[in-house]
């Protein structure tokens, strides 16, 4: 007679006992016995997969000394409470947030270092294409690259199409109100206007939205040649910041962002939508449930 109990079914689902009817039976027979190494509870072992948790690593001092002895910077000191600091409760709600902050800060710091190197290379006039493409150097492997984030952008494009449900009779009221609650992590945005003029024209993929900032990953200067799309620029030249690319923190205040939304079944066209940064100064998850209001427009001119 076939045993149809839940225990047998559970065990037959396990990879460890797959197709191994005998050992399942042996375990089931001995499950209530007082002897043996069986346990009176279900023990679950982690399954094997490709997925690995990558922890942000703080740059070690010796790496730098080997590569850039002349710069002589101290390794970044963690400024926030982290899980590594001894008595800290490892389930603290600050843990993820602080590690993220630390990761962003250490990355920005590394970027500044890279920027110095690029400007040095530029000044020495011996700069070849490879010299400027500094992100490929070993010391800067931890800098974020836009290539790694194109996948999340593809994901976002399908998400936003599903979310908006665009079709022929899409109206402003549906599309606009839905977009105001949409997630922008993964979106490709461009700074269309900003009071801070050096920010105008920056394009990149959003990796985080905070209350006052978008954190985006930008392309690298000549390699991606993004200035070619700006009609106002004829012969684009790239500053050392733009050559390094990577993380940029863009304030929402007094800034308009351009978002391009693909039209389903129409690869020729796209919707172009502006976000008024002044009106969305909320955290991403707060924005989802918030009722927005009209205000006096004197800050939008």
């Amino acid at each position: 007679m076939e045993d149809l109990s839940i225990e047998r079914r559970l065990l037959s689902r396990c990879t460890r006992y797959a197709e191994d009817e005998d050992s399942i039976q042996a375990i089931l027979n001995s499950r209530y016995s007082l002897k043996g190494d069986q346990k009176n509870y279900l023990s679950l072992n982690p399954a094997k997969s490709d997925y690995q948790v990558v922890k942000p690593e703080v740059l070690k001092k010796k790496d730098k000394v080997l590569q850039f002895a002349d710069v002589g910077e101290e390794p970044p000191i963690p400024r926030y409470r982290t899980s590594q600091s001894g008595s800290e409760n490892k389930y603290s709600k600050w843990k993820t947030r602080n590690e993220f902050k630390q990761f962003i800060n250490s990355n920005l710091k590394l970027q500044r270092l890279a920027r110095k190197n690029v400007s040095k290379a530029k000044a020495s006039r011996s700069a070849q294409g490879n010299d400027l493409n500094i992100v490929n150097r070993k010391a800067f492997q931890k800098l974020l690259k836009i290539e790694d984030f194109t996948a999340i952008n593809k994901l976002w494009k399908t998400y936003v199409n599903d979310f908006l449900g665009n079709d022929e009779n899409t109206t402003l009221t549906t599309m606009g109100s839905k977009l105001s609650t949409a997630e922008f992590v993964g979106a490709f945005i461009e700074v269309e206007y900003s009071k801070c003029i050096s920010n105008v024209g920056i394009q990149g993929i959003v990796i985080w939205e905070s209350q006052f900032n978008f954190i985006i990953v930008t392309g690298r200067g000549k390699l991606h040649g993004w200035k070619g799309e700006l009609k106002s620029v004829e012969a684009p030249s790239y500053s050392s910041t733009e050559e390094v690319g990577g993380l940029r923190v863009i304030s929402k205040r007094n800034t308009r962002f351009l978002i391009r939304i693909p039209v389903p079944n129409d690869p020729e066209n796209e919707y172009q939508v502006l976000l008024n940064g002044n009106r969305i100064q909320y955290r991403g998850y707060e924005r989802a449930n918030r009722k927005l209001k009209n205000h006096a427009v004197s800050d939008l001119i």
Partner: peptide, 28 residues
Amino acid sequence: HKQAVVMGTDILNDSENIGHKRRKVETI
């Protein structure tokens, strides 16, 4: 929508209809 999400790129001068499409621009 509530001054936050603007359809189209030029608020004052665009005379085109709401929800209009634009020719796609190639980006990075």
